[in-house]
Amino acid sequence: MNESTWKLFDRVAADYDQVAPFFAEFGRAIVDVLDPPAGCRLLDLGSGRGALTAPALARGCAVTAVDAAPAMVERLAADHPAAVAHVMDAQALDLPSDAFDLVVSSFVVHVLDDPAAGVAEAYRVAAPGGRFAFTGGSARTAEFERDTRPAAAAPPLARRMDALFEEFAVHLPPNGSMGRVVDAADLLQEAGFVDLRVDHATIAVEFADNAMLWRWAMSHGYRAFIEDLPDEHRQEFHRRWMELPATDRVLQRTAGVWSGRKPG
């Protein structure tokens, strides 16, 4: 992860997931989907403040949590002393090979400088027969398990937010914001994972008003997009955000949980 990315997360660590429990809700939903047993050796890769770590510990997993942002790791260690927490780059893990039954990464792989390197490291540290699962920024372009269900329309608030980001993306400077669309299936296959599958985790988080919604946007990765807009477009983006209709204050999102097994 490049310096500008982890430094942004270092800056927002105090507020991260504190305005609204968006990532905590996803963490619980993802762990429910993966259903790790008690005693599972679990690596939380790009752990933030512990959205995955907390529900994994509650299930009796032995959790190691790593993140490139020191302030995130400091808070995770304070809140979840049962976890082993390290400041570490997901693309170059200082961890032994074949050490974890389950490696999980929530909304991290797509913001790495080299997503393939991060997935290759997950493969290295996974035990033979273990799985790696991740969410975030994936295009479904692989041929296996193609989802034939009709696409559902995004809920109103999510749809309006997505449209606003799409409209203002043209004003970003080259290489502005953070993250990219990745092909989860290709990344997993190229790293050597087999038995690929995709599950789905859905959450709904309620916001009191647009001011709260804005504070939330500025407390995580969306902030990179907003700060990278030129001044006049940033002011307009903020105005338009604050004018989002108040008829729906529930943000509903569904994430694909892509996973593969390390042979052995």
Rank of each mutant, 00 (worst) to 15 (best):
V108W: 07
S138C: 04
M178P: 07
M218D: 12
G221A: 02
A153E: 13
T202L: 07
G129M: 03
P155G: 04
E243F: 09
V119K: 02
V104H: 09
K7A: 12
R28V: 12
T202K: 08
S47Y: 00
C40G: 03
F165S: 06
Q18Y: 07
V194P: 15
P245E: 05
S259C: 10
Y16I: 03
F22V: 02
A191R: 01
R180H: 06
D67G: 01
D35F: 06
A14G: 14
L57V: 08
D209L: 08
V103W: 01
V205E: 06
A117S: 10
W6L: 07
D114L: 13
D15G: 06
D67M: 01
D67I: 00
P263G: 10
A58P: 01
A38R: 11
G48P: 04
A255D: 08
A152C: 14
P174Y: 10
D147K: 05
L52M: 01
F165Q: 07
F22W: 03
V119G: 02
P70Y: 00
V73N: 00
D94M: 10
G176S: 03
D89F: 12
A99F: 05
A184H: 07
W6Y: 03
G130I: 08
M242K: 12
R249T: 15
E236K: 12
F26Q: 03
H171M: 08
D113V: 12
A38W: 05
W241I: 04
L229S: 04
S106W: 07
R180I: 06
V87A: 07
P156E: 08
V257S: 02
D231C: 13
A117E: 13
V84E: 15
E121M: 09
P55C: 04
T141W: 12
L251R: 09
A77T: 06
A38V: 14
A14V: 13
A208G: 14
Q252R: 15
V103K: 00
C40R: 00
A90T: 00
L213H: 08
Q235H: 12
T64V: 01
R149H: 07
R240P: 10
S4R: 14
S47C: 11
D199T: 11
R140H: 14
P21Q: 10
L244R: 10
E145R: 15
P155S: 08
T247W: 13
V73T: 07
T53L: 05
Y123D: 07
A204G: 08
A120S: 10
D113I: 13
T135E: 01
R149F: 13
V84A: 15
V33G: 11
F134C: 02
F22C: 05
D89R: 02
S177T: 13
H220C: 08
A142Y: 15
D183E: 06
S4L: 14
A24L: 08
M1Y: 12
W241K: 01
E243H: 11
Q235F: 14
A246K: 14
P128Y: 04
A127W: 05
A191M: 02
N2M: 11
R261A: 09
R180D: 05
H233K: 15
D228Y: 05
A99W: 00
V84I: 14
L8F: 04
A127V: 03
V87N: 00
D94H: 11
F23L: 06
R223D: 07
D114N: 13
A20H: 09
L187W: 02
F168G: 11
F23T: 02
E190Q: 15
T64M: 11
A92D: 13
